[in-house]
Every structure is written in C-alpha cells, then in structure tokens.
C-alpha cells in the first residue's frame, strides 16, 4: 500500500504530510523549551539577588560559547546550501554541504565537551547551585537535540541520498524537513547563549 501525500501536496493543507508533521513537532518543541525558559525566569526572579554571584562562580567560558554560536550559525548556512544544491540537482554539492553541517554539529559538541569537563574539574555540578542546575538542564537538552539533528542529517547525506536517482523530490523535501529541525536547534541556542553567558 502506498502512503499518500508524501511528495504531492494534500488538497486540504496545500502541503505534503511530512511538512505538516515537522512543523507540529517543532511547535511541541517550542513548548518544551518554553517550559524550561519559564523555569529559568522563575529561578532568576526568586534568587533574591544571588543570581550574578552564582553566574560568576560558574565561570562560564564566553569566548568558547561565542565560537560555538558562530559554528551553529555556519551550520545553518551549510544546511540551507545542502537543500539549495538538491533543488539545483547537484548531488555532489548536496553531500559536501550535508557533511559540513554534520561536521559543524560535531565541532559544537566537542567544544561543549571541553566546557563541561572544565566545569567538572572545578567540582561544578548540577547540584552545586540553582544556576548550574538550569544551565546543565537546558544546554544538555540542547546538546541532545544537536546529536539527534546530526544523526538525521547524516542519514540523508549518506545512505538516504541513494533516493536522489529514483525520487529526487522526496529527498529534497526530507532534507528541507531535517533542515527545519536543525534551524530550530540553532534558534534555541541563539537565546541560550546570551541568557546564560552574557546577561
């Protein structure tokens, strides 16, 4: 049995079902991170002026986090370039930009690893302070999303790209959907960076 509307648009929505599906998933993600941001606001308001002291004690590395922000922004560019390459019918360039996106995700995680290990070496753990608890919770959840996005992109850039020769539009649509997730992960970091490191 063939699943309908995987490539062609559904007459009711004007979009294929994958596109509707990924946007509904992203709305649930907005609420997931929204709940954590609301928790962050509550903890900060209720810290009785101790927030700045806890933040200073955590010794977050601003230069490393700035590099990580630039890496994620660059990965968003390579992601849209991968999609644009498929729209142009250029499989080689799609693979190049696809692997660059996965690579940027890898660099982000390596930098995050160094940041986390530096914290642990100074005995800064989630239970050490309210600030570190919410810091590890939110950046840790974000890192899990980066890992998920990397796996998704690696599949379509690697074994999934064989579909290019039989159903190019299907692959182009799926890469657009994985790109939407990847850009959302970038978007979340755009707020996490100033909220934890700078403000």
């Amino acid at each position: 049995m063939e699943i309908p509307y995987t490539v062609e648009a559904h007459p009711e929505t004007g979009l294929n079902n994958g596109k509707i599906g990924i946007w509904l998933f992203l709305t649930s993600e907005v609420m997931l991170f929204g709940a954590l941001f609301a928790t962050f606001i509550m903890l900060r308001i209720g810290s009785d002026g101790n927030w700045a002291a806890m933040q200073a004690e955590a010794e977050l590395n601003i230069p490393l986090a700035t590099v990580n922000t630039a890496v994620l922004i660059a990965s968003s560019l390579t992601m849209v370039m991968a999609w644009a390459s498929l729209m142009r019918g250029q499989l080689g360039r799609f693979k190049l930009f696809g692997w660059l996106t996965v690579g940027c995700g890898g660099i982000f995680l390596v930098i995050k690893y160094f940041e986390y290990t530096a914290k642990f070496e100074h005995h800064h753990y989630p239970e050490s302070s309210t600030f570190l608890a919410i810091y590890f919770a939110m950046t840790g959840l974000h890192a899990l999303h980066v890992i998920g996005g990397m796996a998704w992109n690696a599949y379509f850039t690697g074994p999934g790209s064989k579909v290019f020769h039989t159903n190019r539009q299907w692959l182009t649509d799926r890469v657009e959907h994985s790109g939407l997730f990847w850009h959302f992960v970038d978007l979340v970091w755009i707020f996490l960076f100033p909220v934890f490191y700078l403000l």
Partner: peptide
C-alpha cells in the same frame, strides 16, 4: 543589558525563522 541582549537575540531568531526556515 537584558533588553539589548534579548532584542538582538530576537532579531537573529527572526532572521533564521524567516529566511532559513
């Protein structure tokens, strides 16, 4: 500082959402 930081972050997020997404 909060206002400036969150304003810039909102502009950046809007650019990602409007053009990349």
């Amino acid at each position: 500082a909060l206002t400036i930081g969150l304003f810039i972050a909102s502009v950046k997020a809007s650019l990602v959402a409007c053009f990349f997404m």
